[in-house]
């Protein structure tokens, strides 16, 4: 496979994952704003989406309608849902020869729908439907990938993009809210905190799963443990890291060559397999997350170099 193609696949799926995650963040923010007006939820959402600075530069003060519009279709926001979908499709065009017609048509269809829906600002009453559509379209592309693609290096690079983006996103959700989970600041049981925890779980579609696993025992440490160390949580750090490691292992096997990215992925995966949430809290949740974010940033760059995405 061409290095350029590997890069195109990796980024196509990173962008798709990002569009879905941003849609989920908006969904959560919108819900919290409706049920608990007067909070500063939108500021956290912007921070999590790494769009706070760009937003401030363009609009200044936080205003719900402007934030939503900026996140969905802001021209100057490179990670807006519309820009992510357009980038995913542009990458899909670039790698058109390595994906099936099914995958291409799914991503092209996503783009055409997004372009139509985002031609003008989305009205509040249409927002839930539009956000659901974004999630469903991302699921459609993923489904076509699973149902129609060979399990070869093409598939591995697509999955690497998905899980690297997902790990990054979940870590950022946690990091923006880490202070809520710290025992020193938290007064367990207060309604504000329940809202904040709920936000975290909703943003990763993990509210039901967490409640089911923990019989309603919602604790800060429990939530952090669930999102960082639980091997069953598909949007969690450990699950994502294990996937990254296994897709890299497949590449190592089929190509019979080993690179620095393999070392890094194994080291990160081992740490998540053996780590304990109590240690993380002892050493500092924020420090742990900052290090994790920087580690997967490095891993992404290593994958780019090791598989020759660029000249």
């Amino acid at each position: 496979m061409l290095g350029k193609t590997a890069g195109g696949l990796f980024w196509m799926f990173r962008y798709l994952e990002r569009s879905e995650n941003t849609a989920r963040l908006i969904e959560t923010g919108f819900r919290i704003a409706l049920t608990h007006p007067g909070g500063d939820e939108w500021q956290s959402v912007l921070q999590t989406a790494a769009a706070a600075e760009a937003y401030a530069a363009e609009h200044g003060a936080i205003e719900q309608a402007k934030v939503i519009d900026f996140l969905l279709r802001g021209k100057s926001n490179p990670s807006s849902v519309l820009n992510c979908i357009a980038n995913a499709r542009q990458n899909a065009r670039l790698v058109r020869t390595s994906i099936t017609r099914e995958v291409w048509e799914a991503v092209n269809d996503t783009y055409m729908r997004a372009k139509e829906v985002f031609a003008r600002p989305v009205r509040d009453r249409d927002l839930p439907e539009v956000l659901a559509m974004i999630r469903q379209q991302a699921a459609l592309v993923r489904g076509e990938l699973h149902g129609s693609m060979l399990r070869n290096d093409v598939f591995d690079f697509a999955r690497l993009g998905t899980f690297l983006e997902r790990a990054d996103n979940t870590a950022r959700i946690l990091d923006v809210k880490y202070y809520v989970l710290l025992p020193s600041v938290t007064q367990v049981g207060s309604s504000l905190d329940n809202v904040q925890w709920e936000t975290i779980l909703r943003a990763v579609s993990g509210k039901r799963a967490y409640a089911w696993l923990n019989q309603g025992q919602i604790t800060p440490m429990g939530i952090a443990d669930f999102l960082i160390f639980d091997p069953r949580m598909p949007r969690g750090l450990r699950y994502s890291m294990t996937k990254i490691r296994s897709n890299l292992a497949m590449l190592e096997n089929s190509y019979t060559d080993r690179h620095p990215c393999h070392e890094t992925a194994e080291r990160l995966d081992r740490r998540l397999q053996t780590g304990q949430i109590s240690e993380v809290f002892d050493e500092g949740l924020h420090e742990f997350l900052t290090e994790f974010l920087s580690d997967i940033g490095q891993l992404g760059r290593e994958i780019e170099t090791d598989y020759r995405f660029h000249g």
Partner: peptide, 16 residues
């Protein structure tokens, strides 16, 4: 940009 001259041949940059 995927191609270059190598050992008297044109070669393409692959993942390997």
């Amino acid at each position: 940009s995927d191609l270059r001259v190598q050992n008297g041949k044109i070669a393409m940059r692959t993942t390997r």
